[in-house]
Amino acid sequence: DGWRRRWYIIIFEAETRAGRRFDEILLLAIVASVAVVMLDSLPSVHDRAGALFTVLEWLFTLLFTAEYAMRILVVRKPLRYVLSFYGVIDFV
């Protein structure tokens, strides 16, 4: 369980340097994802950069899917996490 323990600490424990960095990167990705969706909703911006925004939206989707999968992989009781409040919020 060496890699699982290490990743559990990074993902779920914000008191560590790696945990804080993980949270910062995740928050930055969330803000960037929302910004891309907002900008893409503007017709004039969409006309110029719609294809780029589509690629970025897919990349964010893949990133968030990988992050959710890692959370499930590192917990001891995956189903319990998935059905928990935070598990549902992460899924949504």
Rank of each mutant, 00 (worst) to 15 (best):
G2L: 08
G2N: 08
G2T: 07
R6C: 11
W7N: 09
I10A: 09
I11T: 03
F12G: 00
F12S: 00
A14S: 13
R17K: 14
R17T: 12
F22W: 10
F22E: 04
F22G: 00
D23M: 09
D23L: 13
L26C: 03
L27K: 11
L28A: 09
L28S: 11
V31M: 13
V31A: 15
A32V: 00
S33V: 04
V34Q: 10
A35I: 07
V36I: 13
V37L: 13
L39C: 07
L39E: 02
D40H: 03
L42Y: 11
L42P: 01
P43N: 01
P43G: 01
S44C: 10
S44D: 13
V45M: 09
V45K: 06
V45G: 05
H46L: 06
H46P: 03
D47E: 15
R48L: 12
A49P: 00
L52H: 09
F53I: 02
T54Y: 10
V55N: 08
V55M: 10
L56A: 11
L56Y: 08
E57K: 15
L59C: 13
L59K: 11
T61D: 12
T61H: 13
L62Y: 11
L63Q: 04
F64V: 00
F64K: 00
T65F: 13
Y68F: 15
Y68M: 04
Y68V: 01
A69E: 04
M70D: 05
M70K: 03
M70A: 14
R71Y: 03
I72W: 04
V75G: 05
V75D: 03
V75K: 01
V75I: 02
K77I: 06
K77V: 07
R80N: 10
Y81P: 00
V82M: 13
F91D: 01
V92R: 11
V92T: 12
